[in-house]
């Protein structure tokens, strides 16, 4: 057998082995990533309903009728979760906040639109995407998607690389640039009133809305939803349960989502 033929056979053999082994090795590598990597079926179509998927409808009209409501929702959330207030934009930490229509929906650039939309305050928070880019980016699985659709954070594990903040297309993530338990120059603590039932965070980790996982577990609604429930401005529930209130609302109302074109499949829906 001449050397060329022998080389050819060697290469052919190696290629065959690689061909057989590679897919299974790849499969093993990705095993157990179900929670972290989350590719929904189909790029454009709706996602097949399996298990729970929590979602929220934000009825902006109701917030316009009750101008105080949004701030009450924010304050309820931030008090319960010990979210610090640093008093400046650079260090700012927010789980739920109000921004103007132009900033919440920057892609919507109608030539003419209702006057009321100009600068209209709109409540926004983490979208709990079904296909979250932040979860894909996180190098330690400190942020992950749960079976019920909630995108959670494990602050114990976060190394503070802020890759998730670069990845989030909705500006929903905040970083603890300094110690949230500290005080400002006047001795005022950043967390005004501490909720003894919930932890704070520490310097150097990223944080965001957790859809009140800890409250859902004991049968309560998310804090913001609880505040808004009398007005029905926020409707929260399992979108995969056809009888849930949110399913009914989504079936009967036209809603929009923040930047849906990038395939993140947000779980927040707006009625404008």
């Amino acid at each position: 057998m001449d050397s060329k033929r022998r080389d050819f056979l060697k290469i052919a053999g190696l290629t065959a082995i690689a061909g057989i082994a590679a897919p299974s090795a790849f499969g093993t590598l990705l095993k157990g990533e179900a929670n972290a990597s989350s590719a929904p079926a189909g790029g454009h179509g709706p996602v097949a309903p399996t298990g729970k998927r929590y979602g929220m409808v934000i009825d902006v009209r109701k917030f316009t009728e009750n101008p105080e409501l949004a701030n009450q929702c924010i304050s309820a959330c931030h008090t319960i979760h010990n979210v610090p207030d640093f008093g400046n934009k650079k260090d700012e930490i927010k789980w739920i906040w109000v921004d103007s229509y132009e900033h919440v929906f920057p892609e919507n650039t109608q030539y003419k639109r209702p006057d009321a939309l100009k600068g209209m305050p709109i409540l926004t928070l983490c979208n709990h995407c079904d296909n979250p880019p932040c979860v894909r980016a996180c190098p330690t699985k400190a942020t992950y998607k749960k079976k019920d659709g909630i995108v959670g954070m494990d602050y114990h594990r976060c190394i503070g690389c802020r890759f998730c903040m670069a990845a989030c297309p909705y500006g929903a993530r905040s970083f603890n640039w300094r110690d949230p338990r500290g005080k400002d120059a006047n001795g005022r603590p950043f967390i005004k009133e501490i909720n003894q039932k919930y932890p704070t965070r520490m310097r150097g980790v990223v944080e965001k809305c957790n859809f009140c996982t800890e409250r859902l577990a004991i049968g309560q609604l998310p804090a913001c939803v609880e505040v808004a429930t009398p007005t029905k401005a926020l409707v929260f529930g399992d979108m995969n349960d056809p009888n849930s209130e949110i399913s009914q609302v989504l079936k009967t109302s036209f809603t929009i989502q923040r930047n849906p074109a990038i395939g993140t499949h947000p779980s927040l829906f707006y009625i404008i």
Binding site: A36, S37, T140, R157, I159, N176
Partner: peptide, 29 residues
């Protein structure tokens, strides 16, 4: 530079402790 940029540099080895193939930062490491 990566270590200088981490908010929790003491936890840097979490990248090895919890390997995450879907993160590009893991592959970069």
């Amino acid at each position: 530079f990566i270590i200088a940029d981490l908010g929790q540099p003491m936890r840097a080895l979490n990248v090895l402790l919890h390997p995450t193939p879907n993160s590009m930062l893991f592959w970069d490491m």
